[in-house]
Design a binder for these strands. Structure first.
Length: 793
RNA sequence: GCCGCGGUGGCGGAAUGGUAGACGCAAUAGACUCAAAAUCUAUCGGGGGCAACCUCGUGAGAGUUCAAGUCUCUCCCGCGGCACCA
């Protein structure tokens, strides 16, 4: 008996089910539940006006699959969504069109919302957040005030990119080869007072606590390298005939006998001091010129190995190597960075690649002091291992062992309009006066012009009504801070707001935080590993320290997805015209096809190019699932051993692959089972139902439609995830691979679990084995139980 | 340059140190059709052979091992990040 079905038409079913699911609220998370909680998180989309990218669909579908599986496993799942709504693209669009950014955000968010819904993602839409909403950024500002109160926010002069022609500050992205992206003229660096956050105070904990977390190893490694903890020594070198001295940081104090010169960073404070003081050296103007030129180059240019090293000697000045009292020259060179260590190094050409290059160019001596791990040419330390020598030599020269980090404090100011205003008042008498918490949110005022100003200040500086205020402390006239916060601010804590998005009294209720934190699984891009991920861990740790959140870390588990590239392997971009719009796939082939294709197209963690031909394969797969329905029969007698074994293996495989985010092989397993179904005249209903449940997280609409067509009343998405049992064939036979001298030569079927000796006898009797051995004596036989025999002759 | 990741058929890829190429796309041949599309069947890494089968083959080179796509080292190429795009 064939069941009568029409052809698979995604247009008839996808919208229908999306509406029904939303009306029934089946994806809503409950703040109180007897079920265990599970918090799934994806990086919320950054609003840019280009709409949803197929890359968003990739990572959101992946986490959607996990969220759906967790619900079927009996968890109370939180899978929320929101918008990262401040930032440059919206601001630039506002400058171009004159439309208020808030309105642009409203439209853009509406498009994203519609697109996300079209994909059948199981978000809890009641918890949507938007970082540019004053009710949201009120709490971003609140967190800033807590940071300020606790001494973690401070102001410091920092260089910013400056376009000499536009007279505005530029983001790094807007500077291309030292030229302004807008007008093409030269850029420079300019010192500007900036708000800083002291993330370095958390460096050690951010490093150590990675041990507690379930992050992919490559993510931990990259964070650790970014934090860059290193043990070394600070050693003072005196300057001959002067009270001045230079403190260097080195990770290799053992090599000090090979230190043949010192290097100061061009922006080292001592340089400026030397230049203005009456400290005597003969080429002051040359040094000054070098320091100014160095400012124009980026750090990547400056420190690149292979690129020619440059530097200028401070002529007539010598430092004394404290190990051997030798006089050595001092250079200023841009391969040394002011903000790392002490901004000065002792150079050991024999044991450092970059020092070696520099020494070669300037004909500086090269003295080898470590050979095969042992000290040489190092006076009384000769013969010690390099490790032993580190602390002994440091002590001998009066240095101090010291831990340093590569991590730098976070530049938190932007001279831009479209960001959270920094809630402080600057008073000539009282200094920095934080706004009272009751005055939050400090809303962005309406402005005429969204462009940064020619003084380098944010457009807010031009809104005199807003800027000029009375000092809350002394009541004298004062000004508001006009810098705004970077996007990283709002995105550093958004996952906490999802927990209680409408709370007016706190960023989230304590009990709700207690229930939902930490995030159980956070997936995002590798490109966010060192900035967003680290910044939000820092904020969370701070909030923990002030008792505002109950967990030390925000995210229990972190995984990452690969980018989706355009057909030829290039990045998708509007200007190249190679962008795939998910809308067009959803309307022509359906959301289920798009979801299945993106999960099947390749390994989730790796970058992959879009293949327009590949999409149809996923559509064909779903059509075959649809057609299989017509062969379903409820007759129990049809259940069959071969299919049953494969079905159970598939349940296991799909479940395990989802956990490891190996979605491509999970779908492949579903295809293999479908191929098996198709070989039979009828498909037992019980098998087909399990099949639909396994498919449901990937293709929720078609699975639901077929499920209801089978006569089920409740949504498939409220089903339980199936259990499997691993069965063997009733005759218990297994195929064993036979290798002779590691080459595949034969197979044999034997009973599973056969003893080695019995197997050896059987194998050696095989005619093919005898032929290949050709009378040669058997030296050894390697046996992998129930799998393989390798005969070595 | 530094840090991280990757390189397997025509293409996307699969493979707890144990049968390389699962699954899918494209292609070729056939069936169905007046025809086409769709669908179904078969073939599908290179070389040799009527065939059984043999042989070479996972970016290049070396090494460890009974056994290497997988582990180690060197090199080449591609991608992500490098702190104001987010």
């Amino acid at each position: 008996m064939e069941n009568k079905t029409s052809a698979y038409d995604h247009k008839k079913i996808e919208k229908k089910w999306q509406k029904k699911w939303e009306a029934d609220g089946i994806y809503k998370s409950k703040d109180k539940s007897k079920k265990p909680k599970y918090y799934c998180l994806i990086e919320f989309p950054f609003l840019s006006g280009e709409g949803l990218h197929v890359g968003h669909v990739r990572s959101y579908t992946a986490m959607d699959i996990i969220a759906r599986k967790r619900r079927m496993e009996g968890f109370n799942v939180l899978y929320p969504i929101g918008y990262d709504a401040f930032g440059l693209p919206i601001e630039n669009f506002a400058i171009k069109t004159g439309r208020p950014p808030a309105l642009i955000v409203k439209d853009t968010a509406a498009t994203f919302r519609r697109q996300l819904k079209d994909n059948g993602l199981s978000f809890d839409w009641d918890r949507e957040v938007n970082t540019s909403d004053p009710e949201y950024y009120k709490w971003t500002q609140w967190i800033f005030l807590q940071l300020l109160k606790n001494g973690l926010a401070y102001k410091k002069k920092m260089p910013i990119n400056w376009c000499l022609s536009c007279k505005i500050g530029l983001a790094n992205e807007e500077v291309i080869d030292s030229r302004c992206e807008r007008c093409g003229s030269e850029t420079d660096k300019r010192e500007k007072e900036q708000w800083m956050l002291a993330i370095t105070k958390y460096a050690d904990r951010l490093d150590k606590d990675l041990d507690l977390m379930d992050y992919l190893p490559k993510i931990k490694t990259q964070q650790r390298n970014w934090i860059g903890k290193s043990e070394g020594a600070e050693i003072v070198f005196n300057i001959k005939g002067s009270d001045e001295s230079i403190k260097v940081f080195t990770t290799r104090p053992d090599t000090i006998f090979g230190a043949t010169y010192l290097v100061l960073a061009p922006d080292h404070p001592l340089i400026r001091e030397f230049l203005i003081s009456n400290f005597q050296f003969s080429n002051k103007s040359e040094v000054e010129k070098y320091a100014i030129e160095a400012k124009k180059r980026t750090e990547i240019e400056r420190t690149a190995e292979g690129k020619e090293k440059t530097g200028v000697e401070l002529e007539g000045v010598k430092a004394i190597n404290p190990a051997n009292q030798k006089e050595i020259p001092i250079y200023v060179a841009d391969y040394v960075l002011a903000h790392y260590g002490t901004g000065a190094i002792m150079a050991v050409p024999a044991h450092d690649e970059r020092d070696f290059e520099f020494a070669n160019k300037y004909n500086l001596p090269n003295i080898e002091v470590v050979k095969e791990g042992k000290m040489i040419a190092s006076g009384k330390f000769d013969g010690l291992t390099s490790e032993e020598a580190k602390s002994k030599i440091t002590e001998f020269v009066g240095g101090q062992m010291k831990t340093t980090f590569k991590l730098r404090d976070w530049v938190f100011s932007r001279q831009r309009y479209w960001g959270e205003p920094i809630p402080v008042i600057l008073c000539d008498t009282c200094g920095i006066v934080p706004l009272a918490e009751k005055d939050l949110p400090l809303k962005l005022p309406k402005v005429e012009n969204y462009k940064p100003t020619e003084t380098g200040e944010s457009p807010l500086a031009a809104v005199t009504k807003w800027v000029n205020v009375k000092c809350p402390t002394c009541k004298g006239s004062a000004k508001r801070e006009t810098d705004t916060m970077p996007n990283w601010a709002g995105s550093s804590w958004y996952f906490l707001r999802y927990i209680d998005p409408k709370n007016k009294k706190a960023f989230a209720d304590k009990n709700k935080l207690e229930y939902w934190t930490p995030v159980d699984w956070y997936n995002g891009g590798m490109e966010h590993t060192t900035l967003h991920l680290l910044y939000s861990r820092f904020w969370h740790k701070f909030l923990y320290d002030i008792g505002a959140v109950p967990t030390v870390e925000p995210y229990q588990k972190r995984t990452s997805h690969g980018l989706i590239l355009a057909d030829g392997g290039e990045k998708m971009s509007k200007s190249k015209g190679n962008v795939i719009n998910p809308d067009s796939i959803v309307s022509t082939l359906g959301a289920d096809t798009l979801r299945v294709y993106e999960m099947f197209m390749g390994p989730f963690s790796e970058a992959i190019a879009w293949n327009p031909d590949g999409v149809v394969g996923s559509r064909r797969f779903l059509e075959r699932v649809w057609r299989a329905f017509s062969k379903v029969s409820a007759d129990k007698k049809l259940e069959n051993e071969d299919i049953s074994i494969l079905l159970n293996q598939t349940i296991k495989k799909v479940g395990e692959d989802i956990e490891e985010m190996k979605f491509n092989t999970a779908i492949s397993a579903l295809m293999i089972l479908l191929n098996e179904f198709e070989k039979h005249e009828v498909i037992p209903k019980s098998y087909y139902e399990i099949y639909l449940i396994l498919l449901a997280p990937f293709a929720p609409h078609i699975a639901e439609e077929l499920w209801i067509m089978l006569g089920n009343k409740k949504s498939i998405h409220l089903s339980l995830w199936p259990k499997y049992k691993l069965e063997h064939k009733k005759d218990g036979k297994i195929k064993i691979v036979i290798q002779i001298n590691s080459k595949l030569r034969d197979f044999v079927e034997v009973m599973a679990g056969m003893e080695d000796e019995a197997l050896k006898t059987i194998v050696l009797e095989r005619p093919i084995v005898k032929k290949w051995l050709a009378g040669q004596p058997v030296e050894k036989m390697f046996i992998v139980k129930d799998k393989l025999v390798n005969i070595v002759s």
